[in-house]
Amino acid sequence: MSNSDGTGAPGNFIGPDVPFPGAESSVSSVGEESSFSPSDKVESNFRQGLRVFARNKLALISVYVLGLLVIACFIVPIFWRTNQTSLLQQIGVPQNQPPSLHHLLGTDVNGFDELGRILYGGKYSLTLGFLAGLITIVVGTLYGMISGFFGGIVDTIMMRLLDAMLSIPNLFLIIALVAVFGKSTPFLIIVIGMTGWFLTARLIRSDALVIKNLEYSQASLAMGASKLHVIRRHVFVNSMGNIVTVGTFSVADAIQLLSALGFLGLGIQLPATDWGTMLNEGTQELWNGYWWEVFPVSILFIVVIVCINFIGDAMRDIFEVRLRDR
């Protein structure tokens, strides 16, 4: 949500009483005493939000698709068992088999069932992406909010520090860290999370800068409220839209980054795997014509990223109070 919109821009997007976008004076409302009958039911915030979300059909489809994928990755393997953990058991199993009734998507270079492998790798990709994204958003929000709200010298120091960190290419930093400290899964999550929050912090900072100077924050201060109260009650709540939206996108980013690491051979290690690592292995076999080791996993990967982005878009609308029905 953009705050400049909230400060009295005339263009309400819906609502029958404002049929002249940008045409009248800065007062968009037309008059007084629009009557509410007390019997009008007031919906909870949450339900109103859901309604706005549901208006976005693409996002709704995305939720279903992602939901199906999560079920497939986390629950289906419980019922449909394939060996994904023991390399020893794979000795003697034919490798790089094309899709057949027995192996719906063929087998890979180690003879693992490709479909089972995708589900197994998806579990890692999604979990790691989600956790890393969570770290990104928590750290970024805290950092940005402190910097923006307190301003002055605090802001200057924090932002210059951020600039310094931003000047190091992300992937390069991660590769260096992984090379030094190893490739354990929790470490990967932390590294990806801790290197992804810089831009988030900037965005949230600019939000905080604007909101703390808006009149409602000032009014709160004039009532004798503490800074913490203003941050919690006004700044945080009103940048929620951006926080959630950026949060969704950073999950997508983290999944992508993890895949990039996997593709470079620095991701999850055998016998575990993730989609990036699978792509890395698959592309090496692509020249032999083993397409089933590349395309299914890359298509799924694209689908997940696109879905998350659609959902992020719709999330932004949830927090745009003015988009709600009157």
């Binding site: 909230g6 009295g8 409302s29 009149e215 409602y216 709540v237 109070v321 003015r322």
Partner: peptide, 8 residues
């Protein structure tokens, strides 16, 4: 009247 009330 727009920015003086917290929209949320």
């Amino acid at each position: 009247p727009y920015s003086s009330l917290n929209p949320r």
